[in-house]
């Protein structure tokens, strides 16, 4: 796997937030490569730059300097609209909270990305139902997000993130608001999608108890990578 072509490659990423007088350096030179099929965690203390890194990788924000290549395409060369297209077609997002559009049902939320992509209604409903079934949450299909639990909402978010089969799913502390058991269930769910469908995941967490199932662990402190550890990868066997 290490000699396969990189899905994502970053070169010396720097990001400094400027607010009025204050400058906050969030990333101080991050160079990593992510590969297809990896199940990677980015761990690090609060404020270390995990979210910032995920935002940059997902084309939600631009680095102060450095370059990101996604499947060989330099993101710095893309316009805002092109970045939005790229997010729509290549990236699945799971955020810490507020993942779902409150006025849409679980099914409609799941199908939303497909709708953005212009997939016809019958087709997107079919695909959304299928993924909900695979994740064991089809019984909530017609519920509104506010009617289901936090853990269920995050499962729907995962379903929404993978339904369009993006190049990579970026999950920023997807378990931060969940209890330990539910957190493990969610990580297991993502891992299963990784193993069964070969979906590539990168998720940020500061909970070390969630790290036993990852294939790769990147540790980040003060905007710098301090450790990059390949673990035993069952899917590679």
């Amino acid at each position: 796997m290490s000699n396969s072509k990189a899905l994502i490659q970053t070169i010396d990423l720097h990001k400094t937030y400027k607010t009025e007088a204050v400058e906050t350096p969030a990333l101080n030179g991050v160079s990593i490569e992510l590969h297809v099929g990896e199940f990677t965690a980015v761990a690090g203390p609060s404020g270390s730059g995990k979210s910032t890194l995920l935002h940059l990788l997902g084309g939600l924000d631009r680095p102060t300097s450095g370059e990101i290549f996604l499947e060989g395409v330099a993101l710095s060369g893309l316009s805002k609209d092109q970045l939005a297209r790229l997010r729509m077609t290549n990236i699945g997002f799971v955020f810490q909270a507020y993942n779902l559009i409150p006025v849409l049902t679980v099914l409609e939320n799941t199908a939303f990305v497909l709708e953005l992509q212009g997939v016809v209604r019958a087709e997107r409903i079919k695909r959304a139902r299928k993924i909900l079934a695979e994740l064991g949450i089809e019984q909530y299909a017609d519920q509104y997000p506010s009617r289901i639990s936090g853990g269920e909402q995050q499962r729907v978010a995962v379903a929404r993130a993978v339904v369009a089969e993006p190049s990579i799913v970026l999950a920023d502390e997807p378990t931060a608001n969940l209890d330990t058991a539910t957190s493990h269930e969610l990580i297991d769910l993502m891992r299963r999608l990784n193993e069964e469908k070969g979906a590539t995941f990168l998720f940020a967490t500061h909970d070390s108890r969630l790290l036993d199932r990852v294939s790769r662990l990147i540790t980040i402190v003060d905007g710098l990578i301090t450790e990059d550890e390949k673990k035993h990868d069952p899917s590679a066997e």
């Binding site: 939600l60 997010r87 077609t89 997002f93 559009i101 939303f112 990305v113 953005l116």
Partner: peptide, 16 residues
């Protein structure tokens, strides 16, 4: 704002 941010994050175009 949050909801619209989410929609934009998911890749909705400005026109959308």
């Amino acid at each position: 704002t949050r909801e619209l941010g989410l929609i934009i994050a998911l890749g909705a175009s400005r026109w959308r």
